[in-house]
Structures are given as C-alpha cells and as structure tokens.
C-alpha cells in the first residue's frame, strides 16, 4: 500500500502537466501558450522535489534550483518576444 503513494503523487502532477499541454495546444493567442509554458516549468520543479524525496538522492534539489532560474530567464525572453522588441532594447 505504502509503495503506491509516490506513484499516485506523480500521477497527479502528470495530470497537471497534461492540463498545461491542453492549453498549449488550444490556446487562442500566443500569450496563452507562453503562460502555459511558464507554468509547466514550475511544475517540473515540483517533480524534482518529489524525486528527491522518494528516490533519496539530494542532487535533484540542485536540478530544481537550476530549473527555477533557467525557467525565469526563458519566461523573460518569451515576454520580450511577445512585446515585439529586439532582445537588446
């Protein structure tokens, strides 16, 4: 019984990811897609934390921190693209 608990947790997060993917496919404007990509990035951080707990390896937390920072930079770059500016102005 207890061994199924991490599986159920991961399944919940995968459902969340599929909801995000639905918004990425269906989104009427590109801004909707950018929002969904940003949210997907934060969900992966949750995945990393779950892996760090249930396969007891601490380095997944490093991956989580890297994912937070790179996701932030990616969101900023996509926002500048949406605004229609060049990347250096």
């Amino acid at each position: 019984m207890m061994t199924n608990v991490p599986f159920i947790f991961s399944l919940l997060l995968i459902v969340c990811c599929f909801l995000c993917l639905y918004r990425i496919f269906r989104g009427p404007t590109s801004a909707d897609r950018i929002v969904a990509v940003d949210i997907l990035g934060i969900l992966v951080v949750g995945f990393c934390a779950l892996f760090a707990v249930y396969t007891p390896r601490k380095f997944f937390m490093d991956i989580a921190i890297v994912w937070v920072l790179l996701g932030f930079i990616g969101a900023l770059a996509l926002a500048k693209y949406l605004e229609g500016k060049g990347f250096d102005e």
């Binding site: 890297v66 920072l69 790179l70 930079i73 900023l76 770059a77 990347f87 250096d88």
Partner: peptide, 14 residues
C-alpha cells in the same frame, strides 16, 4: 548557468 547570468543582464537592461 554562468552564460545565462549575462544573458539575463542583456535581457533586462540592454
């Protein structure tokens, strides 16, 4: 990661 710090500075400030 080190390069992305400078990319972040370029994005935010020019």
């Amino acid at each position: 990661m080190i390069a992305s710090c400078f990319i972040l500075l370029t994005l935010a400030y020019g």
